[in-house]
Write a protein that binds this DNA or RNA. Structure first.
Lengths: 125, 125
DNA sequence: TCTCTGATTCGACGGACGTCAAGACAGGCG
DNA sequence: CGCCTGTCTTGACGTCCGTCGAATCAGAGA
C-alpha cells in the first residue's frame, strides 16, 4: 500500500469535517473502507501504535526520531520504515529542522477513525 | 473461542470499563499496544471493515453469514476466513442457530478503540 | 438413513509485511 | 573543504496474509 494515495478514490482525510457516520450506524461503503482501512492497518502493529502514541502525546505536539528510536529494541532503519508507513497512511507529518526530523500527529484523521468506531453508550446495553 | 489471548498479557477487552486513556494523552505501554494492535490490524482490511460495519449496523444487532457473503465478490471460504479473523480479534461473536450462523458485534472493544483514538477537539488546533 | 444446503477447515499459491545490514543522503562543525 | 552525526533508502530474507478450490462438518427435511 505504498502508493495508497496514488490512484484511490480520494477522501480528504485532512478535512476537519467528518466524512463518515459511525460504523455501527450505517454500513460503510466500499470506497470509504478502501480509504480508511489502510489507516487502521497502519495502527495494526504494536510498534507503530506506540510510535503514534509517543508522537501524539509528545510535548509541543511533535517528537524527534532521535527520541523515538531508542525506545525500542529495533534498528534505526526499521523505525524509519514504520514512520514512513504512518506517514503514507496520513497519520503523521514529518518535518526536517536542521539535523533532526520531527514527526507530528494529524488529529483530523484520528478524529475520523474515532468517529467511525463510536457506538452509542446504550446501543448494546 | 477468541484465542487471541492465548499467550499475551491479558487485558480484558470485554470489560465495559475503558482500560486506556487516549493515545494522544498518555504514551501507550508496550503491553497495551500488543493487545490492542491486533484489533486495529483486523480492521485494517477493507473487506473486514465492511463486514464489521454490516454486522454492527444490522437490525437486531446481528447478521447472518448468508447475508454477508453475497455482498462481496469473494468466495464463501474467504469470507469465513475474514470473519474468523474478526472473531479472534475479539471484535465479533458467532452463534449458530439451526442452519445459519449469526455474527454480533462486541461494542465494548469498539468503545475502547474509539477511546484510544480520541483527541481533544481543541487539543491540536 | 440419505441427501441437500450452509458454513468452516485444509492445503496451496502469490504477494505483502517486518526486520536487518550496508550504503546513500543531509546538515552542522572544525 | 572534509568529517561526523543523524536519518532515510536499498536489497535481501523469512514469515504472515488474502485468496481460492476441494474436502469436511453441522443441521434440516424427505
Amino acid at each position: 500500500m505504498s502508493k495508497q494515495a496514488a490512484s484511490l478514490p480520494v477522501i480528504d482525510l485532512t478535512a476537519d469535517t467528518p466524512c463518515c457516520p459511525p460504523l455501527a450506524q450505517r454500513r460503510v461503503p466500499a470506497e470509504t473502507a478502501a480509504v480508511l482501512a489502510p489507516a487502521f492497518k497502519a495502527l495494526g502493529d504494536p510498534v507503530r501504535l506506540q510510535l503514534m502514541s509517543m508522537i501524539a502525546s509528545a510535548e509541543g505536539g511533535e517528537a524527534c526520531v532521535c527520541d523515538l528510536t531508542p525506545a525500542f529494541d529495533l534498528t534505526g532503519p526499521t523505525i524509519s520504515h514504520h514512520l514512513k508507513t504512518l506517514r503514507e497512511a496520513g497519520l503523521v507529518d514529518a518535518e526536517r529542522r536542521g539535523t533532526w526530523v520531527y514527526y507530528r500527529a494529524r488529529p483530523a484523521i484520528l478524529r475520523q477513525l474515532a468517529a467511525l468506531l463510536t457506538v452509542e453508550p446504550a446501543a448494546a446495553a
